[in-house]
Design a protein around this nucleic acid. Structure first.
Lengths: 196, 196
DNA sequence: GCTTTTTCATACTAATCAGTATTTTTTATG
DNA sequence: CATAAAAAATACTGATTAGTATGAAAAAGC
């Protein structure tokens, strides 16, 4: 990777960490360049505005991460119900990057930037739809293989699972501990089992 | 109500509307006093800081509203399952104040202010716990009256319902339309029916 | 090695922010 | 009505904000 490309990536990564922990609006460019040891000239060479950088974070940091960690595993799944549970459980309790007190990065950005910034909304919608569609496909596969009831509606379940995930992360954030996750996961288990 | 008390209430109400639509951090005091036609002197006579006003909004605007619209009806309910559905459905589709594109006020504040402001977190936690406990009690009542299965765990269901609500409001916000609400409500219906 | 383009560094600006100091007006109370 | 206290009005401050203007260094092309 060229030195310039490296500078750009460093900015995106460090800025993402700051934004994930502090929020977008309250993370200033001065703070970003201070922690990245990059000058303002370099920053504005790579990004025309702060918002352009924000969208780049979604597309160049969040999207690939999601592809790798959610989309691929779900597509490869032979047992949707078991793997949905494992996916959510992993995200809530084990993922090394996500932290209880900071919630879900995609959820945070959605809450904060929608509906005031169209570029953000579009980029985030793309992400979320990708995840949703993957879940729906996985459910259809499960229906074919007999692991899921035929009368289950994929889109409904996808919305239900993702909503619950976003919501419980907000609870975790509020309480700043794992306890609500354990309670939530038990009910998720019983909900998912009812799809069989 | 005294004139001073009226000034205070006006500030809280208008500020809440601004914060609900724009977010807390991006709503400036200058903007609040401009829309309320109140001077800065008056504002800072009633509130020592912006954050003190924020907490007052939670306690004096959000809390009473929640008491009236969620707590009381749930406590009076004779048929929990039916009324849970109606409550969520009302909130998503009919409530005259809440708007799809702006999400849930409590959820928004939680996302934005936690974990960086303890006073906010405490005030919000109180609100949410109140709602949660009311739902749990309602479920226990339903179990006694035979409307809900005995093996249903109230706390799990309460978390599940509230998480789903918070999450789907984030979806609505992202898409800026009702469509996801309809899909979500269908699955909520079938989830709730499984508690019978 | 010379030139051009890319990449980055420094110093600045105008706007906005939360909050303060001080004075004036309004209201309550005797 | 006089006085004290409560409530509100005005003008300011210092810090922070996103973004710019301009020039210097690095890298690439020949």
């Amino acid at each position: 990777m060229s030195k310039a490309a490296n500078t750009r990536l460093t900015i995106l990564q460090k800025a993402f960490e700051l934004i994930y922990t502090k929020g977008y609006q309250t993370t200033s460019i001065d703070e970003i360049i201070a922690t990245t040891q990059v000058t303002k000239g370099a920053f504005y060479y790579h990004f025309k505005t702060k918002d352009e950088m924000g969208v780049a974070i979604i597309e160049e940091i969040l999207k690939p991460t999601m592809q790798e960690h959610f989309i691929k595993p779900t597509e490869a799944s032979q047992n949707p119900i078991e793997d949905f549970y494992n996916m959510i459980s992993y995200l809530l309790l084990e993922d090394p990057f996500l932290q209880v007190k900071y919630g879900c990065p995609v959820g945070n950005l959605t809450q904060e930037m929608t509906p005031w910034n169209n570029k953000f909304s579009e980029a985030l919608t793309e992400l979320v739809n990708l995840w949703k569609e993957t879940i729906i496909k996985s459910i259809e596969k499960g229906k074919e293989s007999g692991l899921i009831r035929k009368d289950v509606v994929g889109e409904q379940v996808a919305f239900f699972i993702l909503s619950g995930y976003w919501g419980i992360r907000n609870f975790g954030k509020l309480q700043n501990d794992n306890s609500s996750y354990f309670v939530y996961l038990k009910e998720l288990r019983s909900y998912l089992d009812n799809l069989k």
